[in-house]
Design a protein around this nucleic acid. Structure first.
Lengths: 111, 111
DNA sequence: CCCAGTACTTTGCAATACAAGGTATCATAA
DNA sequence: TTATGATACCTTGTATTGCAAAGTACTGGG
């Protein structure tokens, strides 16, 4: 048992939420998302992100378009579908609830 | 894909943290923990909690003592070990970091 | 004696983050 | 033309772990 495992574990639960949120702000491709997550200290590797994007797309929350690049192979630029936007709103609420629950549970006051 | 799955997923990451925190406040047995979590709207079932307690105990974060009950079988009352207390402090910091990361990532400001 | 209530445990399954390796495209330079 | 490096996307195998469901065991009342 180490603290890194815990961090990774906590990260898991909010990954989809963060990724949908990032995509909601701007059309982005995978490397953009990785960079944004990294900036926020939410380390994620390619092997995690790609399957997740595919899953979200298959669930109808995302769509994408190919775009040529001047410096390499073409990129998939992702955007939120209407369903994805609705889902993101629900996730906002879910996250707020979770924060409230954790704060209540871990408050330093002895019950 | 439904929102319930997302809630469950988010819950996972903080379960151990919440449970350690609950135990840090008072010696409790499994049903106490379940009730506290339920009060905080963090629904957890027995099949989740018991293996988790066993794992935390095997990792040296918890210990327990048996106590007779007047209304059923004896109960395991859990308490934090010294290592468990240290670990809880680290988890406090980890949780704070995660909240900061998520807030940064999901802030409504277009980057 | 059985039954209901309480408490702890175990088994099998499904979801999924990650490590590691693979395939494909493009620009540059020998 | 061929080799190299950078970029981008994809796949496979593994380990973890929450959960549903079923099981075991102790207690007291009818």
């Amino acid at each position: 048992m180490n603290i890194e495992r815990v961090k990774s574990q906590m990260r898991k639960g909010v990954l989809e939420y963060c990724i949908l949120s990032i995509i909601s702000k701007d059309e982005v491709y995978a490397s953009d998302i990785l960079q944004t997550l990294k900036d926020a200290k939410l380390i994620v590797v390619e092997g995690t992100l790609y399957p997740l994007l595919t899953r979200l797309k298959n669930d109808g929350l995302l769509n994408y378009r190919w775009e040529e690049s001047t410096s390499g192979p073409p990129r998939k630029y992702y955007g939120l579908t209407e369903m994805g936007q609705k889902f993101l709103q629900e996730m906002d609420a879910t996250w707020e609830e979770l924060v409230a629950s954790v704060n209540q549970t871990t408050s330093k006051t002895k019950k």
